[in-house]
Write a protein that binds this DNA or RNA. Structure first.
Lengths: 132, 132
DNA sequence: CTTCTACTTAGATGGCCTTCTATTCAGGAG
DNA sequence: CTCCTGAATAGAAGGCCATCTAAGTAGAAG
């Protein structure tokens, strides 16, 4: 028994992903699988106050405003960020639950170095994959 | 100070991703951002013995063998899996470090519920993003 | 050596995706 | 009201990607 068959690894390595689950996750992953969108998500998430104005984002890239707007829409459609207009500017913020869902997919892979497992149930949302 | 500016969230929300880092991560994410490849990765990772023969994978999909082979090559090129031929069959296995790298990107996002942070340094590889 | 099976490579096709320019919408200022 | 700025939408062009069929390679078996 090389693998204990209990819960040992990342959800993705625990049991085969159902077809529909994979399709749903792929939508989110596809939104993040772009250098520009990945940086946008990172810039929004790391911005002071947890939110960033579009005007803070456009200057960083050699892209036109409509292109940035398009990428933001992709992220928003995938449920990763949310936008709100306040006066002249539009502010975007990360939706933590969505990001956590991606993290939980790959996160706790014990791998070749089986850690002492000292933080079993701390209130994480590791298994909340299906109730999308 | 709404955000402590210390290490609080997922790496992606801690500081803006560098351009090159985002490009490298996007390659890996793009490999995973496909329903078929996501299921392939899951099937390989969850297979008994930690490895799966190609013949075990082809039957699950309504796709031709060359298409499956193509997807496996994408996953292998991205560094997510590794393949080995033993006799007649070819066996693929997951590369845990690569999957961990994706997990670490999104994983420990405290989000709206700041947990007591009881598992600061357990030996995780959370910060091993840049030394790709 | 020939043949069969498992898998990969080569090349082509259709669709999706990123980016642009041009236009439109939303709010504030004069 | 009119003008200006910030942002989104519309539509088009070009490239990339998933999939297929056809052909090639690797190993076992007769």
């Amino acid at each position: 028994m090389t693998v204990p068959t209990g819960q040992c690894c990342a959800p993705i390595a625990r049991e085969p992903l159902a077809e529909q689950t994979a399709a749903e996750l792929a939508v989110m992953l596809k939104a993040v699988a772009d250098p520009v969108r990945l940086r946008l998500l990172s810039m929004i998430g790391s911005h002071a106050g947890g939110e960033a104005c579009v005007c803070d984002l456009t200057g960083t890239f050699d892209l036109t405003a409509p292109t940035i707007s398009h990428h933001l829409k992709v992220l928003r459609t995938a449920g990763l960020i949310d936008g709100e207009r306040r006066g002249t500017w539009v502010y975007y913020r990360i939706i933590p639950e969505a990001v956590n869902k991606l993290g939980a997919l790959f996160a706790p892979l014990a791998g070749s170095v089986p850690e002492p497992a000292s933080q079993a149930a701390v209130g994480r949302t590791e298994l909340e994959l299906l109730p999308a």
